[in-house]
Design a protein around this nucleic acid. Structure first.
Lengths: 221, 221
DNA sequence: CTAAATTTTTAGTTTATCTAAAATATTTTT
DNA sequence: AAAAATATTTTAGATAAACTAAAAATTTAG
């Protein structure tokens, strides 16, 4: 059973929606893949026939065991390639998504496992997203909150973002914020929810509420 | 102008045939790609429209400058990925072709250049085939002959093969022959053209004429 | 200058996916 | 629980990219 590129993208979308909302509705899938509900129905039937998705008309979709493994393997490949591009080929974190999106559809499990080994079995990709292991287990991070939760005086490190779009990441580049950066929350300005942070070198950044709500942090003290 | 995977495979086949025979005949292309002459005609028209191939009905095909650059870039990617798979992911030389065949269609020039830099700008792939540089120049090797030319008493090193099929390479694995191996030609048996070689450890191999005709060597003395 | 070989044309076929609009089912509201 | 709103499916066909078989045309070789 060969799973096409398009089918793998469906599986990824369903995985994401299932984790977020318990079930993947037709409409949500269509939105995710910039397609239409009618097209989604057609593909769900096919994925169901192939045993990758559990699907009953009008009831939305869930991945089967096999489907979930396949989706996780694709996510694993995607994130490993992102690590490769950043660590080995010196790409910046805002320039790796599209390439990884192509590379994720190539090769078998052996290939991925060797790639993972070569990269030193990384646990997180360049955006801080966890990389599933060979069995599909995702090490969810503990004590991770959005930086908008940080209170004045707290020290924290940036460990992820909830938006990996090029535009957002480039904005963080301009602010000097990157994965692993350590800051103190100095003050929150109530009238617009923006925050001032400072690092150990005394540099200050002003972070708007919209940005703060997309940055994941671990609080140190 | 997007060049499809299938089109890239046509360009590669035409490049190969053009180098070998001056022009790529319809039939030869069809044979190479396991297709039919009628299908080839259709694709040549399209490639001609897109400016990748020079083509007049009944006259066979040649690559344009643009087409040749594109084909060389694909070959470059293919061979670089083979180096990656062998050097970094510990694949054996007989197990890399199919994966490289998939990877060669991904990414742009920047990506290839970074991959080449990461690998240390290798000049040859794991089968001894030369890797085109970023400008498409292929460093053809001097003083390379088929091992069937070696005379008794000559010392030589294996630097390539003219057949990269898994079967042939696995046969060489069984004989213990690999890229860089150094041998002396001990004797040629006239009745079947087979040869006996020996290396510095005193190990002997018997090489049939068919095999000897597919191994490229550089003579040392 | 034929005959043989090669190439092109013709006229679909295949596969995989998508779309618009109508019909149907489900959910929400009242 | 019926009506209204929302979501999903069906229908019917579109699209794209490549392929095929067989007939027609062209080129090449003897």
């Amino acid at each position: 059973m060969e799973v096409s590129v398009s089918q793998e993208n469906y599986l990824k979308a369903i995985l994401k929606l299932e984790r977020a909302e318990g079930i993947a509705s037709n409409q949500a899938i269509a939105q995710n893949l910039e397609s239409t509900p009618a097209a989604v129905t057609g593909m769900l039937r096919k994925l169901c026939d192939e045993g990758l998705v559990e699907y009953e008309a009008y009831q939305g979709a869930k991945l089967t065991q096999v489907g979930e493994q396949h989706a996780l393997s694709t996510v694993r490949k995607h994130r490993l390639w992102e690590v490769f591009l950043v660590d080995k080929l010196s790409y910046r974190w805002d320039a790796v998504h599209d390439l990884a999106e192509e590379l994720e559809h190539i090769g078998d499990e052996i290939f991925v496992d060797r790639l993972a080994a070569f990269l030193g079995h990384p646990l997180f990709d360049p955006h801080g997203d966890p990389i599933p292991d060979a069995l599909g287990n995702i090490r969810e991070r503990k004590d991770v909150v959005f930086s908008s939760e940080a209170l004045a005086g707290m020290k924290f490190s940036v460990c992820g973002v909830s938006d990996s779009s090029d535009e957002f990441l480039r904005h963080l580049n301009r602010l000097g914020i990157e994965l692993g950066s350590i800051y103190h929350a100095v003050e929150r300005f109530d009238f617009d929810g923006s925050m001032e942070w400072t690092n150990d070198d005394g540099e200050r950044v002003l972070v708007s509420s919209g940005v703060a709500e997309k940055i994941l942090i671990q609080i140190h003290e």
